[in-house]
Amino acid sequence: MRSPLMEKALASLQAHPTLRPGDRVLAAMSGGVDSSVMAALLHRTGHEVIGLSMQLFDKKTAGASDGKCCTLDDFQDARRVAFELGFPHYVMDFETRFRETVIEGFIQGYLDGETPSPCIRCNQHLKFAALVERADELGAPFIATGHYAGITRDEAGWHLWKAGDPAKDQSYFLFHHTQRTLARTLFPLAGLTKPEVRALGAELGLHLADKAESQEICFVTQDRYDAFLEAEGRDPGAGAGDIRHVDGRLLGRHQGYWRYTVGQRRGLGVAFAEPLYVVRVARDTNTVWVGGEADLAGRELVARELSWVGAAPRGPLACGAKVRSRSPEAEALVIPLADGRVKVAFAEPQRALAPGQAVVFYRDDEVLGGGWIDARP
């Protein structure tokens, strides 16, 4: 007899319009609690689960570190879960693809004076696009991950939703989903809270039910991202430049514009009568512009590389927009531009609109799409 918690966990799977008992599912297993519970749920409900862990970078050179995902210990945890439950588990090499689509983009973002978001790029290019390719090779109609978000389908098509637990909602990181990828994707944890997932892990007999979460960027082992760029030998050679107040005053000198990000307060190395923040990083002039808290606020941004879950808007779209994963949606108007980008006009000023970060569009709890904040006006 299934427990009430198990019944709750199974609700999203049972409501899936095309998933059938016995279907083969390629389950992405990072070795954490969420993906392990996800895979165990699918296995216990009669699906043919194939566990897959992604080898993304050389662990021997990058090293394992507390708070980071995808370590060798994580892979051992994933393998143990699969062994104890009785389904196959494989580690597949995605190092080249990860280097090309995530690490190089991370580096180039900083060299362009932006603040990159590698976890979203990893979701986009590895955890879904590459997974679907492997699923095709293995004859699996579905892929599954431990993300906290929801998927439904109606006469209008597939829809992406926030998770049932606002504290764990990861829909901001999944805006790149399309009708094609949503049709192949399962999020078994959609209706659960993190404490419920841990409790379910214990109920399922998983050894890692109390395992700590990973928080940091997996491939950066240094304390500072500029140190990572230096270790990669990617100093752009721009040399020292000016640190200027937004009113034009010269306040000091920096040793590399790529060491600074919009909203940064610590480590500026200049003295001033009030707290200063990085307002803009200008690669072309090798200048870091700083100002007060009020100077961080902006009412408009331009976004590039748009992705829409459904049809792209043909005209202005009134919606909610998030410029950070943990911020609430702000009332906004999305205006398509002739060059394929969009302008986003906010009803109220927003803090630290950082180029390179994602802006994601919502209608209530539904994800409509998103894009990347552009440094160009």
Rank of each mutant, 00 (worst) to 15 (best):
P4N: 10
P4E: 12
K8H: 06
Q14V: 08
Q14F: 04
H16I: 12
T18N: 02
D23A: 14
V25C: 04
G31P: 06
V37R: 08
V37G: 07
H43K: 13
E48F: 06
G51L: 05
S53E: 01
M54Q: 09
G63W: 13
D66K: 15
C70I: 07
D73C: 02
F75K: 09
E84Q: 15
E84V: 05
R97K: 14
R99F: 11
R99D: 07
E100W: 13
G105W: 10
I107E: 07
S117D: 15
C122K: 15
F128D: 00
A130C: 02
G139M: 00
I143T: 11
G150S: 14
G157W: 00
L160C: 13
W161S: 02
K162D: 03
A163C: 03
S171Y: 00
Y172C: 11
L174G: 12
H176D: 03
T178H: 07
L182Y: 07
L186T: 05
V197C: 06
E203W: 03
A209R: 13
A212E: 08
E213D: 12
E213Y: 00
A227K: 01
D242E: 15
H245D: 08
R249M: 04
R249Y: 04
L251V: 09
L251N: 12
Y257P: 11
G263D: 14
Q264A: 07
G267I: 04
V270R: 01
A282N: 14
R283H: 05
V288G: 08
A297P: 00
A312P: 05
S327A: 14
G340S: 08
R341Y: 07
K343R: 15
V344G: 03
A347Q: 12
P349H: 01
A352S: 15
A354Q: 12
P355A: 12
W372M: 13
I373M: 10
R376Q: 12
